[in-house]
């Protein structure tokens, strides 16, 4: 009996870059929801603590390669971000085609896609306003004050004397955001998640 020749196994990795703690919590919940619906693949979430531009994504991918014992192939790289950053005039929207091309050419990325939270991940949270109000133990007829989703969520947390910190508030806000109905949010954001779910091969009716 001849022995099979040993082959070098590559790690096939899927990565989602998110821009802050709140985004990380919601995307993590979303992945758990997919798992409860039969999705089995591993996905790594990397919080870039700020807009995940090409530079930050490259750095994140390089760290994974450096830490891995096997050669790495990035089966899918996903960039999640709030679209409001471009309206504020702090950062220009990258040329995404160029970003995709660069990542595929230089970083061994097979597929690239984006999740655009319009205008911010807090607008997604408000898709389950009832759940958020219940989590915060606020009356269900409470109308969130503010112009944008972020203002509204901040105002709701403020009513419970909690400083809502989307960038670095993981420990404080997780217990509340964990109570949101992610199926409801996913249903409301189907359009924004279509490409992402396609890349992951997720199909839920």
């Amino acid at each position: 009996m001849t022995k099979k020749k040993a082959t070098i196994n590559s790690d096939h990795i899927k990565v989602i870059f998110v821009e802050g703690d709140a985004d990380e919590i919601i995307i993590d919940k979303l992945i758990s929801y997919y798992r409860s619906n039969g999705f089995k693949k591993q996905i790594k979430i990397i919080n870039t603590h700020g807009f995940p531009d090409e530079k930050k994504m490259r750095q994140g991918l390089t760290k994974i390669i450096m830490c891995s014992k096997n050669p790495v192939e990035f089966e899918a790289v996903v960039c999640e971000y709030d679209t409001d950053i471009f309206a504020k005039g702090i950062q220009q929207e990258p040329n995404w085609k160029k970003v995709e091309k660069n990542l595929k050419q230089n970083n061994n990325v097979t597929r690239f896609c984006r999740i655009q939270a319009k205008t911010s991940i807090e607008d997604w949270m408000l898709d389950d306003l009832e759940g958020l109000l219940k989590a915060l133990d606020l009356p269900l007829n409470t109308k969130p004050k503010g112009q944008y989703g972020q203002d509204k969520v901040k105002a709701l947390f403020r009513r419970k004397n909690i400083m809502y910190d989307r960038h670095k508030g993981r420990e404080k806000i997780k217990q509340y955001l964990d109570k949101l109905d992610i199926a409801k949010i996913r249903e409301a954001r189907k359009k924004e998640l279509k490409e992402f779910e396609g890349v992951l091969g997720i199909s839920i009716n």
């Binding site: 403020r158 004397n161 909690i162 400083m163 910190d165 670095k168 508030g169 420990e171 404080k172």
Partner: peptide, 14 residues
């Protein structure tokens, strides 16, 4: 007390 608690919440976030 509300503002005090909010301030403490902000510090403990950081």
């Amino acid at each position: 007390r509300n503002v005090f608690e909010l301030l403490v919440s902000a510090i403990t976030n950081l």
